[in-house]
């Protein structure tokens, strides 16, 4: 059935309920489910346990593993001791790639000394025409070299998506072994799921034409990670 121009596509409240009830009813019949068979309790218990399944053993130097895996997925990495070193490192990167010395950043980074390092920085969400976006991350995953960002009032996801270049500021203390630890960290430190959790593993890419890898399909052509070791007792 199609909705035709000019015709009325009306769906009564009752038919919505009936599709729901019909589908759930068929599932219960097929699974031979009986009331009070304990399925609800089993499901609750499984969810509350947040059990972790077998996975690769990520031990040892998490920072080194993160670095290796991120580079393998074509992110680039610079390492600095202090957050105050970030603007100079970002400026050096932009110059090296002949990129515009003009960027937008998340609120938490606005007070760094951008101007004396030659970068014209604006604190606002990126627009489609912005060329460079600078963000922090929530944490990073050693297993795959992945950045994890959370949406929020001061952490707009568009800034890591629309610009051609994404510069991410990551503290070494934010690196966790696997995605499972990232979720735990989210539960304990934030509590609630933000609207969007974005895992980013290098520049946007496509291999749709003749299986040939090409960077910068829709998102950034370049992801540059500035790794800050300040305040990390492990370093």
């Amino acid at each position: 059935m199609r909705c035709r121009p000019g015709s009325i596509c009306r769906r009564s409240g009752s038919s919505r309920v009936s599709a729901r009830e019909a589908i759930l009813g068929r599932i219960r019949t097929s699974l031979r489910r009986a009331d009070g068979d304990g399925a609800a309790e089993r499901v609750r218990a499984h969810i509350d346990a947040h059990a972790v399944s077998p996975r690769p053993h990520i031990t040892g130097d998490l920072i080194a593993q993160f670095r290796d895996n991120a580079v393998r997925l074509l992110s680039t990495i610079a390492e600095v001791p202090h957050v105050r070193d970030v603007p100079a490192t970002a400026a050096a990167y932009l110059r090296a790639y002949n990129l515009p010395m003009r960027a937008v950043c998340w609120k938490a980074l606005r007070l760094l000394d951008w101007v004396n390092n030659g970068i014209l920085m604006e604190e606002r969400p990126a627009r489609a025409t912005d060329m460079v976006g600078v963000t922090e991350v929530f944490c990073a995953i050693a297993e795959t070299g992945t950045l994890m960002t959370l949406s929020g009032e001061h952490t707009p996801p568009v800034s890591s998506l629309l610009p051609e270049t994404h510069i991410a500021v990551l503290r070494t203390s934010q690196i966790v072994p696997s995605m499972e630890e990232a979720w735990q960290r989210l539960r304990y430190t934030v509590g609630e799921m933000p609207r969007a959790v974005n895992f980013i593993s290098g520049p946007s890419r496509t291999a749709d034409i003749e299986q040939t890898l090409t960077l910068g399909a829709h998102g950034p052509y370049r992801v540059h990670i500035i790794l800050v070791s300040e305040g990390d007792s492990r370093v």
């Binding site: 997925l73 009032e153 799921m193 969007a196 959790v197 974005n198 895992f199």
Partner: peptide, 24 residues
């Protein structure tokens, strides 16, 4: 699927824009 350890973007979305969000 593609022989990648992880796809470039894994996006988990929960509900619409929240109070204060500037996108979504």
């Amino acid at each position: 699927a593609t022989g990648q350890t992880i796809s470039n973007y894994v996006s988990v979305t929960t509900g619409p824009q929240r109070d204060g969000d500037t996108d979504g």
